[in-house]
Design a protein around this nucleic acid. Sequence first.
DNA 1: CTGAAAGCGCTAACAA
DNA 2: TTGTTAGCGCTTTCAG
Lengths: 327, 327
Amino acid sequence: MTVTIKDVAKQAGVSAATVSRVLNNSGYVYEDTRKAVMEAIDRLQYKPNEVARSLYKRTSKLIGLVLPDIANPFFPALARGVEDKLQQQGYRVIFGNTDSDATKEMDYIDTFLQHNVVGLIASVDRLHHEVLSNLRVPVVTVDRTAEELPAVYADHKSGGRLAAEKLVTSGCKQIIVLRGPQDAKPLYDRFQSAMQYLSEKNISVNYIDCQLSFEDGRQKAKELFNQFPNTDGIIACNDLVAAAMLYEAANRKRKVPEQLQVIGYDDITISEIVHPSLTTIHQPTYDMGIKAADMLIKLINNEKLGTIHEQLPVYLKERNSTVNGGI
Amino acid sequence: MTVTIKDVAKQAGVSAATVSRVLNNSGYVYEDTRKAVMEAIDRLQYKPNEVARSLYKRTSKLIGLVLPDIANPFFPALARGVEDKLQQQGYRVIFGNTDSDATKEMDYIDTFLQHNVVGLIASVDRLHHEVLSNLRVPVVTVDRTAEELPAVYADHKSGGRLAAEKLVTSGCKQIIVLRGPQDAKPLYDRFQSAMQYLSEKNISVNYIDCQLSFEDGRQKAKELFNQFPNTDGIIACNDLVAAAMLYEAANRKRKVPEQLQVIGYDDITISEIVHPSLTTIHQPTYDMGIKAADMLIKLINNEKLGTIHEQLPVYLKERNSTVNGGI
DNA sequence: CTGAAAGCGCTAACAA
DNA sequence: TTGTTAGCGCTTTCAG
């Protein structure tokens, strides 16, 4: 049925070992034999069985990718970065959505390892990092990173400050911060640094806990507008939530940005699409994926890493949900 | 280093064959021996090596998922459906984004097979279907389906008609249809049926070719507004493109829906977020993923399929980019 | 009911 | 330079 290395060997009139040699460019092979083998391979359309290879070498071309939820538009962008880089280097991606559920994470990691993945890229909450620390393969964390592991992430301390700063310089006096899940480091960092900046500036500020979805955003938006009707500035934990704020503001005829300014986080595609378009903190999401893949490949190849922690810059992307210029 | 079946065997004082038997619930094993083996497994934290298993059985728990582009929000929803179902059944997903590029498709499919995937779920353009037809594993196509293969898709003929019908009953006289890539069956079907309905009703209609991205949508929106300034209804090929239309309409101060009505397709999250919120054709995207996975699992288990082609209904989701009521 | 042995397809010593 | 052999970890005859 399937054509194996033996078939090729027979066809080429050599031994399997020789075929293997030309396949892997290992050892010496006469140019003529190499040619004969190549022809046999072509003729038989032979493709090496990666599973057999993997069994012997105890390694593979597979890399596990563990993400919270690919339905959140931030992660597909990241995933594309990872995949594009890895695919180009001959690796393949196995992936799993964890919904930040520890059991699912364990489950995926286990089976990834059972499939001899040669490395892991993961974005998981802080509480679950121990799991990642003693694996027999290299791990790179991305976005939801771990101190003790290689990590690629954006500068959320700047991000949080930038957002707060923007609203303050644009004249907001009554600010509400939406606080994302604090188990996720990026959400923690940006919240803390925004709050710190605001308290330094003696701005009146309150916060509301919020999940990262549009749905929860709407829920919390309602609470917000009821509980804090005088709010003139909102710092959302991500763009989805910011969009929900805009949505509810429109429902209540609150003019954005004249009466209420809103700032998001991530700069996913929708932030440009919503009305008014969303001022936000831009993350280099795709690049983070690329970088994480890069880093992992280096680790796999036992190359030295420049830094264990690769922090990428963010910037303020001004659109129309905040007022332009200064105070 | 890694604990193998032999270690378990030694620990339990039996042979590897026996351990294998309890692992697979195959053959007869004394309850006592079974217990001993289980204990040894527990104590040693033994996890079977899936690669070795796969090599012998020439099969695995891996399923390949081939999608055009996970950055298009439609596909992550589909992917989640696929993954949730498969994961729950003990399968794992390897995936690849093809950007509708035949080479990438081939590449992924090849390596998936080399990894002994036990089945494939694919969404690829019609031109590339032949590749899928003679694989040694079952294939289910989803969304971008193939006649000759098992398929899960939404009823795009109804979808196209529904969209056209809506605009006509809402009083549009000058309609523009954005035509998506016609190599993709869903885009073909919905375009054809919309056009047919409109021609039956003797509505003045033109079309413009458009990619499925927001960016190209903006481009084409500009052309549209320049070339056909009297347009009062737009049928977009998907929600991303519809959002681009709204965006450009806002730029040009064209009032939606009063002067211009827009209808999208897919009902992805953003269609609710944009302003005005988008009337669209709802696809059961997540469910399509679930169904495709279901179907594939049946094929893998050699169960009979009720139908080879599973068509799911769509419906018109009315929001605020069209006017309410009838003529 | 259990163990010994062979083999899935490939690679890496080791000889020749 | 090439072939022979053994073995990666597991499953499955086949004896017993």
